[in-house]
């Protein structure tokens, strides 16, 4: 196992270090450059077979980087902003999900379950949410792939576009971080866009995004219950689906735990350890460096695994539904965040 992973991790490190060296010559943030370099290499040459297992570890590096990043987050700042952030997260998640559902069903005539997967992916945590919701409503594989590809298409675009918008509008680090955390889709691109803007923006974006991710279990159960009550009338394969959906809805707390992103616990433990005085300033700086290295590996993998061919298969109707919802919610949210922070 170890020797299957190490070559791919070495490739991630090579891409990351190369992008970091290039960023000294090109005025682009090294994290954005890492994703871009990975994307170009992955598209032109593909990921070699010997590196595939190691490249697939990029999710672990991202989550480990977030766990370690907890040391840099000031607890008093979190406590002060906590209630406002929770209200903003609940409001944004609910609004985004509803807007995507309505647009997908009534304006762009997207299949109901595909619309629900898109709504979950857009409002909570990208592809992870698509997969978690899909498990509860047991939808056909083709719809999962379709929704995931749509979300990935937006992830790939937003990671480059958001920092440009942030700089063009002259947003503060706090506003930009909270805004990206509330409105971008998957955790990786949110983290990349946040840290590409500034260190402070990165911390805020991850903090807000983790709060958003924590709602995944509740959303997954809500969708499972909704489709269980609807019965098999909207199913892809009715008998199999109605049984599975009933199962998803009845699992309750177990399902909530299953879908909960556990790495948030690690983030909280690290944040509490650093804020209780267990770590001195030098150690916190060391952990911030460790977090940056982990992100470098994660973003190299994120870029390498973007399948441009798969993105080309995405139809225009789901893209339009998500795009209209994103523009509406993101612009409204930005106004609210600017007022609050």
């Amino acid at each position: 196992m170890l020797r299957r992973i190490v070559p791919g991790v070495a490739l991630l490190l090579t891409v990351g270090v190369t992008a970091r060296a290039l960023s000294a010559a090109i005025p682009v943030d090294h994290l954005i450059l890492t994703i871009f370099l990975g994307l170009v290499l992955g598209t032109v040459y593909g990921v070699p077979v010997w590196a595939q297992d190691g490249v697939a570890t990029h999710k672990v590096w991202l989550e480990a980087g977030i766990v370690v990043m907890g040391a840099s987050v000031a607890l008093d700042r979190v406590v002060a902003a906590g209630p406002v952030l929770v209200v903003l997260v609940i409001g944004t998640v609910t609004t985004t999900a509803l807007v995507v559902e309505l647009l997908a069903r009534y304006v762009f005539a997207v299949h109901e379950k595909t619309g629900s997967l898109l709504a979950a992916g857009s409002s909570i945590c990208g592809v992870s949410a698509v997969v978690a919701i899909a498990e509860g409503i047991d939808v056909d594989e083709s719809r999962i792939a379709y929704a995931a590809a749509t979300v990935l298409l937006f992830d790939a675009a937003m990671v480059f576009v958001y920092p440009l918008i942030g700089h063009a509008l002259g947003l503060s680090s706090t506003v930009f971080g909270v805004w990206t955390g509330l409105t971008m889709f998957s955790t990786g691109p949110v983290t990349a866009a946040g840290f590409a803007f500034s260190e402070t923006a990165g911390e805020w974006s991850v903090l807000v995004k983790l709060t958003r991710n924590a709602t995944i279990g509740v959303a997954a159960i809500a969708y499972a219950v909704y489709y269980a009550r609807r019965g098999s009338t909207v199913g892809d394969s009715e008998t199999r689906e109605s049984a599975a959906v009933g199962d998803g809805a009845s699992r309750g707390l177990g399902y909530l735990w299953e879908t909960f992103p556990k790495f948030i616990f690690g983030f909280l433990v690290t944040m509490l350890a650093a804020n209780s005085g267990l770590l001195d300033a030098g150690q916190v700086a060391s952990l911030a460096n460790a977090s940056d290295w982990a992100f470098l590996l994660a973003f190299a993998g994120l870029g390498l695994e973007v399948d441009v061919g798969e993105l080309r298969t995405v139809g225009y109707r789901p893209v339009l539904a998500v795009l209209v919802a994103l523009v509406t919610v993101a612009s409204t949210t930005l106004l609210i965040v600017q007022t609050v922070f």
């Binding site: 989550e63 480990a64 370690v68 790495f263 690690g266 983030f267 690290t270 770590l279 150690q283 952990l287």
Partner: peptide, 20 residues
Amino acid sequence: DDWQAVYLGLLSVVAVRLGV
């Protein structure tokens, strides 16, 4: 993946606390 990340992250914190 989630638990791998938690333990890897916490191991890093312990290592740094011990002087790495």
